[in-house]
Design a binder for these strands. Structure first.
Lengths: 192, 192, 192, 192
DNA sequence: TATGAATGAGTCTTCATTCAT
DNA sequence: GATGAATGAAGACTCATTCAT
């Protein structure tokens, strides 16, 4: 009976560590999640974690890299497009989808900014956000339009989590969030 | 010269603890800030902190209570007004000002959500935000208008910090953020 | 209304400290009772305790001295009597009464022996017990009779506390304990 | 020479912790024995203790469980016997032996009652003593006979430690204590 | 692929005590 | 007859990390 479970666990320990770690990081925060806790949940020893990852931070880095590759790709694609309104709207649309695919990670990033800032992924993430901003808004745009863009990005990032206690279908909510963000970017593009 | 310092330190240690704690909490996060660090900065012993505050969390609670009283008052005021568009705009305007007066604390709340959620102030803050939301938007409004309101609140909370690397006068930035938030609330009020 | 209380508290703080301390020491043990706790119960500051007593241990010493004076006197009296059976029985009877008059302290001594042993009163108490033993039993008596005497003393000391969960009038219990102890001493006196 | 020591230390650290802890607990009391002290004696770090035991209390619990199993068994056996005088005497005899096998622990329990009462083992121990009492004496017996039984138990528990400064062979002393306890139980059984 | 055993640095917190006022 | 403010030492406990096996 346990045989199947044991079998299945062969070879995918690394993946299971990532899964549990992400869940706990997102739930409790990075600092409050200890390697002991992760190990206990998986029924392995702490030392086993160190076979798969060099440090605690490395677990997070691996999650970040694995889960945000689509976003990295999206942004790189965006930089090579003409910065038309259509492109911007397309970017926002695809960004919204990408976020939905890695929701727990982004919830984590959102809720642990102080911690993330000190970590390796903090730098990477920040720089990525700046590249995204530079696609969505011209550096010479009016201040208020910059704010609109930043607001759109924030809405995308945080919208979902904050709406958790609002009733309604998650996909409907995502669409609503997307629409508001698109509006903001559109207004920003057209200037006051 | 030390004489004056010593003199001045008489009786205001509690305040000085709060000041240093807020700075460190906002800078490094709650968990990464140890009481040892706070004490060292003040050149007192850890035990001295415990003379003034019962626990580490109490320091944070005291900061929260001292600094967010105007906001609590504002929200209570708002609940007693008719929920007209004008009221909503007034609330947003005054909220923006109140936030500016406690910027470091709000930066802290924003960047340490995972931590704050487990703390006593997390509950209080969340409940306050819900009250604010209920002033800004009708519970029966369209989903998208709810999102607009939430987006407005987020814009106010996070706008300033995210714009830190954008050049420009802080007060100008605040005005821009306020304008975007006001727009969102206004759109939300008028429905699609 | 508080005036009377305040009035009454004038000048008897020392006594009140002793009362509260004894209660807490007996209830929770010496180490687990902090001066903070005592002070809080009395609604004074810790420093006030130090006005009346030089150290924590001194509070205990004062309790011991105040409450065990009758016992000290009793033992001194006993030493000057002829060591007849009648004397021994009389000693036991009066010891039982003396104990009842300082029950909380003796409960404390009984339940905190490890602690008391390291304290100043430990030595005094032990030496007193040896003097009592030497009254109750001849140094050349059979081993078993010595045990009987020690057992009698223990019965007196611990009997009451252990019988707390037995129903019945406290004074009846004391009488029963006294009778058993007297029996033991009598048997010891008469030898096998 | 250190080689052998090192060798020997492999794998029996848990046991060594228990040994040292029991010695120190019995000697100085529970509260006055710090984990630092235990660790230093063993030449390991405090953290090593926490690898083997979850808390300080757990060390004590493990000692209690390991050392009092025979007593638990004895009492369970006793409950299933008819409560005749012979059974009672047999119980007392075997209890005396069991105590001798765990003398330091019982000395500890005896001398740290206030502390033990607040600990997990306090409950267990108290309940065990009540079961023993219920074997030795009928709940409807005269008060004085109840006292005799309690006195017998106390004599067994405390007798040995108190006789430490009396000269004589330890086994002789144990026998004498046993005899006094047996007498008391016998008298109690036969009623006044 | 893991585990068992351990470490060193650090955490928050509590305590008895002191002393100027 | 007390308080306010502080200290130094110590407490139990947790953590990320290491390494021989």
């Amino acid at each position: 009976m346990d045989g199947t479970n044991q079998q299945r666990r062969r070879g995918d320990t690394r993946q299971r560590i990532q899964d549990v770690a992400l869940e706990l990081f997102a739930d409790q925060g990075y600092e409050k999640t200890s390697l002991r806790e992760i190990a206990e949940r998986l029924d392995v020893t702490k030392a086993a974690l160190y076979y798969h990852f060099k440090t605690k931070e490395e677990i997070l880095v691996s999650l970040f890299e694995d889960l945000t590759r689509p976003i990295e790709d999206l942004i790189e694609w965006g930089r090579q497009q003409p910065h038309t309104l259509a492109t911007k709207q397309e970017i926002v649309r695809r960004y919204s989808e990408a976020l939905a695919g890695a929701a727990p990670l982004f919830r984590f990033m959102q809720e642990n900014q102080a911690t993330v800032r000190e970590l390796r992924i903090g730098e990477v993430f920040k720089e990525r956000m700046l590249r995204l901003r530079d696609i969505l808004i011209d550096p010479d745009a009016e201040l208020i339009d910059k704010v609109r863009c930043v607001s759109a990005m924030f809405t995308l990032h945080a919208g979902m989590f904050v709406l958790q206690d609002v009733e309604g279908d998650p996909e409907d909510k995502r669409k609503a969030v997307l629409e508001v963000a698109t509006d903001l970017v559109t207004q920003a593009h057209q200037g006051a």
